[in-house]
Design a binder for these strands. Structure first.
Lengths: 253, 253
DNA sequence: CGGTTCCTTGACGCATATCAATCTGTGTGG
DNA sequence: CCACACAGATTGATATGCGTCAAGGAACCG
């Protein structure tokens, strides 16, 4: 049982493609889901889910930072997602069948909303809007995974970092020329499939094209320095698209 | 309008996690979906969908081979999926919003069932079993993508090829010691994120551990030579799991 | 201040991409 | 039936880019 008002306000403030679990859901449905959910706080470093665990909850971040990753016998880790406030995880795993293929780790003390597996599975069959939301979220994770795959395959470290910054910049609506790295550099580096050393060297390269780095703050010379790293399905989300200054969008014309 | 009997027989014969679009669906629903669908044949090499296209159909393979991939400005390609009879594509893309992030290419003359986007989107809201099937399929693609990501990150070419063969072997239910490569070697190589040369050299390495290759036929010395390439969420699908001969499963005990 | 964690920088080696040549199989046409 | 062309696969030689290892610097905290 929760203090509903606080949670509901939070829910309503966090609706987008990556995190809109409750988007367009009826008041009744939200009540029903929340009634059976709980809120819990986890310390930094806590492994909420381990590879091989049976999925028991969908986790929604109210506050804090979370990382999902896989690990092999040599102890090497591959980061799958880096998530911040409003995002959810384990929704996809729940529908994969079988044990969890991922770890879920708290990177910064996190307050999470826990929605039990049974409630989700049942509610999916009763509320088609809810299941459509889940579909959209899982599809969006999948899309992100596809980007990671071609990043590893065909993009140089420079392009990978550039593309990562570009998506962050677009997420901010191209408003600010500053980008804040929400995670430690070594974590971002692993997410981008490279070592911290290579990440560091790559950041130096970026300086020459007008992207300066100080600590965890990235500053862009202007809103177009990242356009070279764009691709077609990112361009459609860009507020600057088809502006004459964008080298990428000009290609299409 | 279709010759329903043939298609329906096909549908009923192809139900699994990757391809069970019609699993547990009522007769009425199937009728409704098929009534609005069509069957079409495409030649080898045909690009059914291009990066940037608006998704218009779900495609289900009745006969033939399909590849989905992404491409960058340098013309380099990253294969996302290799699909055969019974599998579907573009279901996930449909729920991503925006244009297609992938190409869909016919690798071998293909007969496809085309289900229009509008029908799918509408039916999802009316049939919760159908939307659950879609969820399961998209989640399973996502899981596969996660495997690809950590393969690129943490696995050597040898491990990647070994793991690929292992999954093929398990798909066959560990019945046969032969594995048939459904696609040309260069296509498989790209899917595994390496060049054809590296793939070829890797196959030679595999000979020394009891995996021989002749043309597109892989022969295993026994059912356990691939166990070294296993991981926890593959092991649960393995019919040999926890048999004493499996070096991987023994580790857990 | 001393200790710790994180980041950066430098030197080095290796694994894989790249380039080029050869081999194999298959289909075509004389 | 053989000669030829062509695509795919293999093999070899080379180079380069990233990871690895090691050391040094910066920020933070008790």
């Amino acid at each position: 049982m929760l203090s509903n008002i606080e949670i509901k306000n939070f829910i309503y403030s966090q609706n987008n493609a990556q995190s809109g679990l409750f988007e367009s859901i009826s008041e009744d449905s939200i009540q029903h889901l929340l009634k059976n959910s709980s809120v819990q706080t986890f310390d930094t470093g806590k492994l909420i889910v381990q590879q091989g665990d049976t999925p028991t909850y969908i986790y929604m971040i109210i506050e804090g930072l979370i990382r999902t990753f896989r690990i092999n016998d040599n102890g090497e880790e591959a980061t799958i997602r880096l998530l911040t406030k409003g995002e959810t995880c384990m929704e996809a795993v729940m529908f994969m069948g079988g044990p969890s293929p991922i770890y879920v780790e708290v990177m910064e003390e996190a307050k999470l909303l826990l929605i039990p597996e049974a409630i989700v599975k049942k509610h999916v069959l009763e509320d088609s809007q809810f299941s459509t939301n889940l579909l959209r979220i899982v599809a969006s994770h999948y899309k992100n995974a596809m980007h990671q795959i071609d990043a590893m395959n065909i993009k140089s470290p420079l392009q990978r970092v550039g593309y990562y910054f570009l998506t962050k910049h677009i997420e901010n609506g191209n408003k600010s020329l500053d980008i804040q790295l929400p995670f430690k550099k070594q974590v971002v580096a692993n997410y981008l499939g490279m070592t911290p050393e290579t990440f560091s060297r790559t950041l130096k390269q970026l300086k020459s094209i007008g992207i300066s780095v100080e600590g965890d703050k990235i500053s862009l010379k202007d809103s177009y320095v990242l356009c070279n790293f764009c691709d077609i399905d990112t361009a459609v989300k860009c507020p600057n698209k088809e502006k004459e200054n964008c080298s990428f969008c000009q290609l299409d014309n």
